[in-house]
């Protein structure tokens, strides 16, 4: 993306080391990249390369061991304006769908009534209108994950962190949700940082793909994906699509 704009956040040599009495485990080693407003950035890497750790650090769930995370944009409050979609839907089974979506509103002590309309709109955006009064155990896995996306968007965060959100779903549901995610991204103009180990998924969705190597993880590549938007399945037949995927395979040393 253009460098004349200010980055939303900038990671500079961010590291995470777990220390026990006599060993050190490097969960995330020296990662540096910028995320610009409105960008869709994917982080691809093998299991255990620290992708989830990276998101948790950005969400304030884990402290990083060294390096800096700089918020460059003046009007971005990283304490309140982050939404997190986890690997599992993590819905509260005692709350109806609508009340699950409104959970962040209650935690952030925002007036609930004023947000009910927004919650309904978001449920409609993720294709779940009419399901407001269902309990989570009445929904399929894919539908549960859609609820969790609506929940992550309810407090209108600028940055959406997504940790392999469709990893546990079957391949067809996953493809479908990827299409819907692009639609949601285009509608809401969020900045998305998307963690995955799906190489084609990353190319298909992203403006930029960050490739991490296995532990001790290093940044192997940062690829700008210059494919036309809005994207449809035809983009997969674009020769450039294959070349980007190949670059990622190389970065991951799968040859």
């Amino acid at each position: 993306m253009s460098d004349d704009r200010k980055a939303l956040i900038s990671l500079r040599n961010v590291k995470k080391v777990y220390r026990t009495r006599d060993t050190e485990l490097e969960a995330l080693g020296d990662v540096s990249f910028d995320v610009f407003p409105g960008e869709f950035v994917s982080v691809v890497g093998p299991s255990g390369c620290g992708k989830t750790t990276l998101l948790k650090i950005l969400a304030g769930l884990l402290p990083h061991s060294s390096g800096e995370i700089v918020v460059e944009s003046e009007n971005f409050d990283i304490e309140r304006e982050v939404g997190f979609v986890f690997q599992k839907p993590l819905l509260l089974h005692w709350r109806k769908v609508l009340d699950n979506v409104l959970l962040p509103i209650e935690i952030l002590k925002i007036n609930r009534k004023s947000m009910v309309g927004r919650a309904r709109e978001l449920l409609s955006l993720v294709g779940l209108d009419g399901f407001e009064d269902r309990y989570p155990n009445e929904l399929s896995g894919g539908m549960q994950q859609r609820v969790s996306i609506a929940r992550a968007l309810i407090h209108d965060p600028k940055l959406l962190l997504m940790d392999e959100p469709f990893g546990a779903l079957d391949a067809i549901t996953r493809e479908r949700l990827n299409m819907e995610l692009l639609h949601i991204w285009e509608e809401t103009k969020k900045t998305i940082l998307f963690v995955t180990h799906g190489i084609n998924e990353a190319v298909f969705l992203s403006d930029r793909v960050i490739v991490l190597t296995a532990r001790p993880s290093r940044m192997a590549a940062s690829l700008d994906i210059d494919l036309p938007r809005p994207r449809s399945q035809e983009v997969r037949t674009d020769p450039a699509f294959g070349r980007y995927a190949l670059e990622i395979y190389k970065g991951l040393e799968i040859t």
Partner: peptide, 24 residues
């Protein structure tokens, strides 16, 4: 733990963690 992360990233207070997650 993941459920706790869900509210912790929004900076939930200890009371909120009890009321919204632990007690139910």
């Amino acid at each position: 733990e993941d459920l706790l992360d869900l509210v912790r990233y929004l900076h939930a207070s200890k009371l909120q963690v009890f009321l919204k997650i632990r007690i139910p």
